[in-house]
Simulated scan of single mutants.
Amino acid sequence: MEPWSLLYADKRKEYAVTVSGVEIIPDPIIKGKETSFVISAFTDKPLSEGEVVIGVAYFGWSVYSETGDLCANISCLIPAGDFTISYTQLLPTIAPPGSYTLTLKVKDGNKSELTCIKFDFSIGFFTSSEQPMDT
């Protein structure tokens, strides 16, 4: 697993939810295969509802966005403490290779932003059917 570098969108803001890491599975990312982004986070207050907003940019251009229920993949009530957010997406075989930036926002039930992080990832030239076989 590569240590992914993440940045808070607003470095001066104190977010209610802090993020300690990102894991991308598989690593490296393979076009035509599901990719999971697992975000390790901490909250000092329980969360009972909210939404997750995902945005993906390719060389700075917005190419994908999605808003979903925070509790769709996590059992709510999320108690104070450590928790993880998992997001899985099938990357199309036509996705161009190169550098991408994923932005993840977590909002509470009142649409107040609890955290906003950005991290870079890249997609290689191969699709899942073109990957070299392990021997």
Rank of each mutant, 00 (worst) to 15 (best):
S128E: 15
C76V: 08
S129Y: 08
T88C: 05
M133W: 06
I30Q: 10
D134A: 09
F119S: 09
K33W: 03
F37E: 01
L70V: 05
Q89K: 14
V52M: 11
S48Y: 04
C76N: 01
G109T: 02
I78D: 00
V56D: 13
D120C: 08
V52C: 14
F42C: 04
T35L: 08
S5M: 07
N73D: 15
Y64H: 14
Y58C: 08
S62T: 08
P28N: 09
I94G: 03
N110W: 14
E49P: 00
P97R: 03
D69E: 12
F126A: 14
T101L: 15
S129W: 10
T88G: 10
N110Y: 15
D10K: 09
A9M: 11
L90Y: 14
P79C: 11
E49S: 15
D10C: 08
D82R: 10
I39K: 02
K45S: 09
T35K: 00
I39S: 00
P3E: 10
I39P: 01
S48V: 05
M1R: 09
L6T: 06
K33S: 05
G81F: 09
I85D: 01
V17N: 14
N73I: 05
T127V: 08
F37I: 02
S40A: 12
D44N: 13
S40Y: 04
Y87H: 14
L70A: 02
E51C: 06
S40P: 03
K45I: 01
G50S: 06
L47N: 02
G55P: 02
P3F: 07
E66W: 11
L90K: 12
I78C: 02
S48L: 05
K107M: 13
G124K: 05
D108E: 07
E130F: 03
D27N: 15
I85F: 06
N110I: 01
S20Q: 05
T127H: 12
D69M: 03
G124P: 08
E2H: 08
A72Q: 10
D108N: 15
D120M: 15
F126S: 09
P26W: 15
D82C: 05
G81R: 07
V22K: 12
M1E: 11
F59G: 08
I85M: 02
I94H: 10
Y15I: 02
A9D: 12
N73P: 03
V52Y: 00
S36L: 13
G109L: 04
T93F: 01
T67V: 13
Q89P: 02
S62Y: 10
L77N: 10
V17D: 06
F83C: 07
G124T: 01
D27L: 07
L77H: 03
L91C: 00
I30A: 03
S62R: 15
W61Y: 09
L6V: 07
A16W: 11
F59A: 13
I78Y: 00
F126G: 01
A95D: 01
D27V: 06
G109M: 03
N73H: 09
A80W: 04
Y100T: 11
L7R: 12
A72C: 03
G55L: 06
A16M: 11
V56R: 04
K31T: 05
I123L: 12
G81A: 10
A16Q: 10
I123F: 00
I85Q: 06
E14R: 14
I24E: 04
S86V: 13
G60S: 09
T88R: 12
I74R: 07
F125T: 04
P79I: 10
A16C: 05
T88V: 04
F119Y: 15
V56M: 07
T93M: 05
